[in-house]
């Protein structure tokens, strides 16, 4: 008589199992950005993968960056090939937002310290391969502004 319920229990088990969901596996990525051998702070490092979400980091005073995925709280980057964009945030570090919500430009003629070929990810000369399952380190020696 228990046989009548066996099928029912199997269906329940299947339903429970189908609810499972796997998180995207990210690989840890760190590195250093240098210009003429000196570490460069306030550089925004963007990794644009060929598939999946973007990862971003910003260099500290020692030029070190740690990538974090764009709008989530996970650290790291998606494994695979990435185009790398570098943007200099140093000229805009004194900018502020006015009450209309607009940014006020306080750059006072300060210009980007790095070459502009790094700004646009699709056209950037930097391309890297992030490998799954181990910490990745990428050091970028960048060209100065022309």
């Amino acid at each position: 008589m228990n046989k009548r319920y066996v099928g029912f229990i199997v269906i329940l088990a299947l339903m429970a199992a189908s609810g499972c969901d796997e998180k995207t596996k990210l690989a840890e990525v760190t590195g250093v950005v240098t210009l003429d051998g000196k570490p460069l702070e306030l550089i925004q490092v963007e990794f644009w993968p060929t598939t999946g979400p973007r990862s971003i980091g910003k260099t500290d005073t020692e030029g070190k960056f740690t990538l974090e995925i764009d709008d989530r709280t996970q650290k790291g980057a998606i494994p695979g090939t990435h185009k790398v964009a570098l943007r200099d945030t140093w000229p805009s570090k004194d900018d502020y937002i006015n009450d209309g919500g607009e940014w006020v430009d306080k750059s006072n003629g300060k210009k980007s310290r790095i070459h502009s070929k790094y700004y646009d990810a699709p056209l950037s000369p930097l391309s890297v391969e992030v490998v799954a399952g181990k910490p990745n380190t990428f050091d970028f020696k960048v060209d100065p502004r022309k």
Binding site: R87, P91, K111, S112, H115, S116, K117, Y119, L123
Partner: peptide, 8 residues
């Protein structure tokens, strides 16, 4: 759109 500077 690609960033500041006119050398791009």
């Amino acid at each position: 759109p690609f960033g500041p500077g006119n050398d791009h």
